[in-house]
Design a protein around this nucleic acid. Structure first.
Lengths: 208, 208
DNA sequence: ACAAGACTAACAAACGTTCGGTTGGTGAAA
DNA sequence: TTTCACCAACCGAACGTTTGTTAGTCTTGT
């Protein structure tokens, strides 16, 4: 009726509702339980209606993966106008501390446990599907470049030693990925020891 | 015919052949493609015959997971009669170096890429299945205890500083898990930067 | 002859997908 | 302002295939 409704209560695209439903199904049933029928039930549609929005299951799944990896990337990569050391530590704090975003100066919202579990499952598909491999490689590379840029800024600013930014970034990324896998596949795992060890590494091997 | 055949060319238990077939199917098709039909085709049996060896699919899958995790654990946990520092470094070398088991004093055969891919896929199932979660938690804990014991030996021998063995072990395990995930989900990934960084950590934060 | 192991055949259920039909709203023609 | 055509969105029903599973039968070594 009124054109204001366009901005008022966005019922969202049905397409996105379907992706959100897929997210929930994947979380509950896993990749092998991710069927058109279950997605349709979750949205409240007939399964035939899904094909009005996606040409086939492969189309839906590829869109879904892009959607998830975009969300993941926007949680991981953020620019901030603080010192390299502060930025690096606020990233690690948000990813590795139980009480998140409390002590750090910069507010960073880490990926939720739900998103992490879905991410780990998509990653596992990359073991046997080269389409997924390419996308996973791309997000990993961008994440490493992001970390390397911070380290390079730290070196330039005299805060960090003259380390190899790519080497340290790769190591940090591997570390973060390992902690993601822990968080997603085990319950009640404390990342505090990991947090302490990586700070020890930074203090003794990276900071001036 | 002759009883010597029992030892000559071990056709192995049919049960194990089925598990090996499941291994290959999982590797090629992923978890969602792991069907009784495909496993039977791989062994050269009718799918009905599978039920002569396993009561149902769940039974087969649980045996399969146990089988894989046992193989994984025997690759990860080995006792050796060398100094703690040597043992720790030979473990890291075998897991993180491209040319494996060349420079290290102790021969350790690391998990193959195939096994690693399957392991990562089983781990991903743990995100939504508590049976898998328990088994994954168990193998992680044993691996961490193994690492912690080495570190404790190093402290007692005066080779390592008075660090918290469990904290360092947890960090090392997280690191190793991250590199496993990298190796399994990306092609052509070099673990050399990771290897260098962790050695830097050990030199500056753990060794005396 | 006996049991283990493999076979053929069939089952209901779930799978992805297609077809044809029913809505409800929007824009143009009358 | 009414009428009509159009179209996106959704639905019900059916399709052929694959799924896990069971029952009964044949084959084989001891």
């Amino acid at each position: 009726m009124v054109s204001d409704d366009l901005f008022a209560d966005p019922p969202e695209d049905t397409q996105e509702e379907i992706l959100q439903a897929a997210f929930e199904v994947l979380q509950e049933q896993g990749y092998s339980g991710l069927s058109i029928q279950r997605i349709a039930n979750k949205v409240g549609l007939q399964k035939a209606s899904i094909y009005h929005h996606y040409s086939d299951k492969d189309d839906l799944l590829l869109s879904f993966v892009d959607h998830i990896l975009d969300r993941m990337e926007s949680d991981l990569i953020r620019t901030a106008d603080v010192s390299p050391k502060t930025q690096l530590e606020s990233i690690l704090d948000s990813l590795l501390l139980d009480e998140r975003a409390s002590t750090s100066a910069v507010e960073i919202s880490p990926p939720s446990d739900d998103l992490l579990r879905v991410f780990i499952q998509i990653r596992a598909q990359a073991t046997h599907n080269s389409d997924y491999q390419d996308r996973i490689a791309a997000i990993d590379e961008r994440h490493e470049e992001h970390l390397a840029a911070i380290i390079q800024r730290g070196i330039d600013a005299g805060e960090f030693r003259n380390v190899d930014p790519n080497q340290v970034a790769t190591a940090l990324n591997t570390f973060i990925l390992g902690s993601f896998s822990q968080r997603a596949t085990r319950t009640q795992v404390s990342l505090e020891p990991v947090h302490k060890s990586i700070y020890s590494y930074l203090e003794n091997s990276v900071y001036v």
